[in-house]
């Protein structure tokens, strides 16, 4: 069931996930047409959808702001627009990381931090800075298709360092959350991106897509204009049940990014080796972090332990965990 709508207000809106935005042309001309925005807002109102608006780094006309204000929404904005749009989710890029002075004014922010592979070695130091200012950080690892054994190991070490910092912060009244370390702790089932199932995207061309990446990355066809009966061919393949690898996996926090799946494995329901390895590095980091939290006697004592496992990619165990037809039907 759809729960929210992503609306990309401009070609140059801040990308908040694994895709790249298009080069900015004329800021006026690359905006989502006002009429399309109106259609999106009405669609959201009629279908009880919350809206996440993705903002560009330039100001919008009054008419746009007025329409946006008609619906319950969250703003996702580039870091540079934080003062224009307070109380928004901020997108920070590792290759344009704010200077120390720019971070000074931040307080209890909700941040999406997109980390380039080239900046992997700076992950812990960057996060250490941000964690002091934020209540939540969603970490997005870019360029994962290029990750190899050394990168995985470096990521593991970086998370280990961050984990120590998080442990210190855990004594605070409202300790910050770091998606790749803390999300898994409280989950007992998959909680993934769910593009196409829980949310759809209105792109700057006024058409619907599974998510912004399918617009920018051109990995799939548009779903057409905004209307009531949205045709998603083979929609069931987006569901966990139809992913032979994911349905046996307990890296519950994994994004299961259907765009990356399509890009790297050619199937929306099949995760790449990189996606699985990264999610299992995070799962293991979460497991160890939880252990340390419990040893320290904090609140998470009530949380269930995360089992230790011997594989780093569930692809390795698919054969042994193959479901029977009867068990498949029960899902």
């Amino acid at each position: 069931m759809l729960k929210y709508l992503l609306v990309v207000l401009s070609e140059s809106s801040a990308p908040f996930c694994y895709y790249e935005k298009k080069p900015r042309k004329n800021p006026k001309r690359d905006l989502l047409p006002l009429k399309s925005l109106e259609e999106a807002v009405i669609f959201a109102l009629k279908n009880n959808l919350k809206v996440n608006f993705l903002y560009p780094d330039h100001k919008l006309d009054k008419a746009y702001n007025a329409l946006i204000d008609e619906v319950d929404h969250v703003k996702i904005v580039p870091f540079g627009s934080r003062e224009t749009y307070p109380d928004s989710i901020l997108v920070i890029e590792s290759d344009g990381f704010p200077a120390a002075g720019e971070l000074k004014g931040l307080r209890d922010e909700n941040i999406i931090f997109r980390l380039r592979k080239n900046d992997l070695g700076k992950l812990s130091s960057r996060l250490n800075l941000l964690l002091m200012k934020c209540k939540r950080i969603n970490l997005v690892l870019m360029d994962i298709e290029a990750y190899g054994a050394e990168d995985f190991e470096q990521y593991r070490r970086q998370l280990e360092t961050v984990s120590d910092k998080m442990l210190k912060l855990s004594a605070k009244k409202d300790p910050p959350e770091l998606s790749v370390l803390t999300d898994r702790l409280a989950l007992d089932r998959m909680n993934n991106c769910s593009a196409g199932l829980k949310h759809l995207t209105v792109a700057p061309d006024g058409k619907l897509y599974l998510c912004p990446a399918f617009y920018y990355g051109r990995a799939g066809d548009t779903l057409g204009g905004i209307r009531n009966d949205i045709p998603i061919k083979n929609r069931h393949l987006l569901e966990l049940k139809y992913s032979p690898i994911c349905r046996i996996c307990d890296a519950y926090h994994c994004r299961r990014c259907v765009f990356l799946n399509k890009k790297l494995t050619l199937e929306v329901n099949t995760p790449s080796s990189q996606q699985c390895r990264i999610s299992h590095i995070e799962r293991e980091a979460s497991r160890l972090y939880l252990q340390k939290l419990k040893e320290a006697g904090g609140n998470p004592v009530a949380l269930a332990d995360i089992p230790e496992i011997a594989y780093g990619d569930p692809f390795e165990i698919v054969e042994t965990k193959k479901l029977s037809i009867a068990d498949f039907k029960k899902l």
Binding site: Y242, I245, L266, E267, N269
Partner: peptide, 22 residues
Amino acid sequence: DRNRLRSFLTLDMASQSPAECL
């Protein structure tokens, strides 16, 4: 490209068949 092999090597009957076949 081993990523492209993953779907072929994990594909099972249930994941590709309509309910009437199962």
